[in-house]
Amino acid sequence: MKTKLFFTVVIVLLSSTKLMSQDLDKLLDAETEARTEYTAGTFKATRLINGQSIERMQTGQLDFRIDHRFGLITDSYNAFGLDQSNVHITLDYGINDWLMVGLGRAAMEKTVDGFLKFSALRQSTGKINMPVSVSLFLGADMKGSNPVTTADSLYANRFSYTSQILIARKFTENLSLQLMPTFVHRNLVVDPADQNNVFAIGIGGRYKLNSRVSLNVEYYHSLTAHSASTYNPLAVGFDIETGGHVFQLFVTNAVWNTERGFITGTTNNWMKGDVRLGFKISRVFPLIPRKDKSTEIEKQVGL
């Protein structure tokens, strides 16, 4: 009886001293709550090459983009395309944590385009486990060029709409892949072989060659029959990060820069080598700075 009691006392004392000298490391680990680690940087830019990536601008960040593509490389009369240019200028803005809006102007058919991009799901590990990131893209194009036919002069006939579900997964630090089921509706199609409603599936990805350069590939395959002069757009390029820019350099057979344009209106065949050189420049301006500077402590302690 007495020995039992003695042992109990010893054990209790021992365990209490153990509690006292508990390693701060373990204590800290116990206090660090389970986190959800969201995958960042699936792609370097909000555009994969021609089309959209799942990435979006964060709250208050304005992205000024210039998309410029030259003429066909096969066109020696135009200095292999360098004499020609086709520009699309866009302003993208992060409204909040899940919505980005964009407004653009393309030289092709004097198009004005706008879009909304929603971040529906985010790839994550930890507390919340999500294998993929999913964004929803809704865009509209308005043709601005002077009407050439009576059908063209009808205001409603100038519009087309694009809806996309962008599904991406960052498999490793270097490899990300994306799938883009797409639906395009054009209010007016000129060629009788073309359809107003076009379904397409896009596939693309990037492989990081080093921390600042990645190789990107993007292809859209139309599931709807179209006129013989329309081809599926393929693009291969590099994302290059410089100090404050992301520079995208690519070759593609698409002349159009807007979604409905390159998915339904690409008239060059890349299998014949009819590709053009293009580049996109992105410059980010933080319109709402995330500063929460507490200058007081700086005065207090100083360096």
């Binding site: 960042a40 370097k44 960040q61």
Partner: peptide, 20 residues
């Protein structure tokens, strides 16, 4: 501390900080 929790003014700078 987690490095990802450092928030920058500029999204691009934040990405460069984390990635590069």
């Amino acid at each position: 501390a987690f490095l990802r929790d450092f928030k920058f003014d500029n999204q691009l700078v934040e990405e460069h900080f984390n990635e590069n």
